[in-house]
Design a binder for these strands. Sequence first.
DNA 1: CTGAAAGCGCTTACAG
DNA 2: CTGAAAGCGCTTACAG
Lengths: 354, 354
Amino acid sequence: MDSSAKLTRRVTLADVAKMAGVSKQTASRVVNDSPNVTDETRARVKQCIEALGFRPSALARQLNTGRSHTLGIVSNASVGYLVCGEAYVGMLQQTDKMGYALLNKLVTDFAPDNVTSLMDGLIERQVDGVIWAGPDIGDSHTWMDSYPMERLPMPMVAINTRPRPGIDVVGFNNFLGGQNATRHLIGLGRKRVAHLSGPLDRWVASERVLGWRKALEEAGLGDCQRLFVEGNWETSGGGEGLRRLLEIDPKIDAIFVSSDRMALGVLLEAQRMGIRVPEDIAVVSIDNDPQSAFFNPPLTTMTQDTPAMAEAALCLLVRRICERHGEPYPALCAEMPNTSFEHQLIVRGSTVAN
Amino acid sequence: MDSSAKLTRRVTLADVAKMAGVSKQTASRVVNDSPNVTDETRARVKQCIEALGFRPSALARQLNTGRSHTLGIVSNASVGYLVCGEAYVGMLQQTDKMGYALLNKLVTDFAPDNVTSLMDGLIERQVDGVIWAGPDIGDSHTWMDSYPMERLPMPMVAINTRPRPGIDVVGFNNFLGGQNATRHLIGLGRKRVAHLSGPLDRWVASERVLGWRKALEEAGLGDCQRLFVEGNWETSGGGEGLRRLLEIDPKIDAIFVSSDRMALGVLLEAQRMGIRVPEDIAVVSIDNDPQSAFFNPPLTTMTQDTPAMAEAALCLLVRRICERHGEPYPALCAEMPNTSFEHQLIVRGSTVAN
DNA sequence: CTGAAAGCGCTTACAG
DNA sequence: CTGAAAGCGCTTACAG
């Protein structure tokens, strides 16, 4: 073996310049497609770039320009959450189109010290902006109240969190989602409309509960509020949830379930107990998982266009970044995006027999 | 508004040094915890760091050291695939522990030009290593044969791909997975063991087919090979798959299905057709999705420890990186990881009535 | 249209 | 134990 075993030295702009017989300047101009270079010179330099296999160092450029063209995204570990779905994929694609890369960080512990060191990591790497997609659980977001946001050297957009002054938030209107799901049941003539919720310390879950209550009140069914059980998002919680709801009132005729997975548990338990869906009990849920159309019966559910929401968050973030740097908005972000998204009802066999 | 509207200038090491009355050198030593600094000096510098809110620029450091402590991960957009699950989360956590950040890139188009520009993007950002988690579909990996790997300035580890000389691969033994799933059915005394596969251009799917065939031959059931239908991974393909298999032979008594989602389709269609599972037809599948334990009947399936696999890939990559740079392995990667993982059978009601 | 200089924020040798 | 110099690979003014 010869000395090629040693790390090959990186090809630099200086190498290109030397080979082409021009200054680094001019070489740089060609790399960056700036004008003021003879066609002839440009061609020659381009050849050298090709021949040497030159690839500009993003690091060096970043150090000069102060822009890393990298975005940080902070999410949590719960599988099935944003980062694990099409929303994340959509965001990646969009990010790529706009010339940014995406740096992923996990947040599990929301203690201020921990969050601070997490943010420090992003600051050190000089990301141009941050998307905060940690779930709003209990006091998981109180750090935002004490964190010195004004000292944050880059803009931040939060996803699906309780609104907070001074922070950009993009997300779904879960209150309305819960309200509309419940209205659907009421519109079918159901009179005892129960709710199997997600964990109540989740902001998303608690908003849906409020929406359910609101819809009940609108319809003069306020006494249904006792028909409530807190679930765990999971299939395993569905069967138990159904049984507990029936203990509260055996004559329940409809349930709004806060996740498709729990709804699957409800459907299976109902089958076991000989309860007919939707004749005896109508079931509507939220998520529209791919499998849900194939449940028995197919599940009526509220779908959320998470990719659109993710794209909106990204767009807003890039706009904030441009504002900080006094740059014009890129074409893809020309318009201020929608920041509040609505769920769409998909009616299937679990509420309307066919 | 005063001039604070302007971007606050970054606090630099020079600021710290000046305030502490030392050289940048010494300040740097304190930041990097290197010895050869008086306790007194160290304390003073640390105070200044705190007071100024100094955070070292990872960029500048990277430019000097040639190490970005960033890893690239290339994956595809298919939801449900590696990047969308606990494997990715596990990898993120592990990555973080070892002091690396993870840069995520999407690959959709496997044309050589496209792959090259994708790799260029990673090279420009000077990632220390790459995990290639694009799916092995058709000729999606032939670029590896023509790409000048020796010129790649960083090591690469591929996940779940067909073995290729000169490339590190970590993944599951899908041949064995298919074989063991089928052996389970045969061990239950089934004689007409069919297979509903994934798309055949997927390496993973085709390996499972081979495993199924092998198990049939072992048991002298070679004539079952005609009991085969190609599926699409999805729930929608399950029902159709079952019907087509029954057209081939109405007396099928067992099916090895290549995904839990398709298996759900099979179960529902069987129910509709009045076929009892497992009495008439036993069903085993691969994936162990969280919902599958709650299907009716609960699904017998092969689980794969993707987090362990992902961690192994990461560990191997970091070792390769250290080798390139002549560094010792970090403690977390002291041992050469396993590179071939096996599925584990989880027996439930769809093969064994309880 | 082209180039020499200074600088981005840090680190790596090398002196003291 | 501490520091002055040179350099990582590029870019941004400023001259010509």
